[in-house]
């Protein structure tokens, strides 16, 4: 594909990457809010405290909150870099880092499912990384060559 002739789909992927990068950044900040809330929950007595602790355990507990915060921070950076890579049609910054981000996202989701079980809502989260992985390595493969 001719250099400089960026397909509209690649531009759309870059814009979506920037949006998801911002969401991931917010997710990372959300981890601190969760951790602050957990301190309160740990000291809350009675049925309300028990219910809150059970709900947290069912969604993976303290370790998973930390892990998802770290993955969110990583994803925010990788999505931002790969988004710029798509716009500049870069092979490493775009295709490699974009594919890497999608694989990390998928692996983390699979690990989470293996721990807490599958929920239909999680299926929506698979759509973007799977599509990115397919598109970067088929449809846009020859556009990311710089």
């Amino acid at each position: 594909m001719a250099e400089g002739k960026r397909p509209g789909g690649l531009t759309a992927l870059a814009v979506i990457n920037f949006v998801f990068s911002a969401f991931s950044g917010l997710g990372f900040l959300g981890m601190f809010v969760f951790l602050a809330m957990m301190k309160t929950i740990e000291t809350t007595e009675g049925q309300a405290g028990e219910d809150a602790r059970r709900a947290i355990d069912e969604t993976g507990g303290y370790d998973w909150i930390i892990a998802s915060g770290v993955v969110n921070a990583l994803m925010a950076v990788l999505l931002l870099i790969s988004g710029i890579g798509y716009l500049k049609q870069k092979r490493v910054m775009g295709r490699m880092i974009g594919s890497g981000a999608a694989v990390i996202n998928l692996l983390f989701s699979l690990a989470f499912i293996a721990t807490v079980g599958m929920q239909f809502a999680m299926l929506v989260g698979f759509v973007y990384p799977v599509l990115t992985l397919i598109l970067l390595n088929t449809t846009f493969k020859d556009d990311l060559i710089n």
């Binding site: 789909g9 992927l13 929920q119 239909f120 929506v124 598109l135």
Partner: peptide, 27 residues
Amino acid sequence: SLRTGGGLTALLLALVTGLGVAQAFIT
């Protein structure tokens, strides 16, 4: 169509909206 911004956005929106509708009843 997949190479155009419109096509890709349409595909993503179709999947996210459709799965969102299904999720409202399946969850």
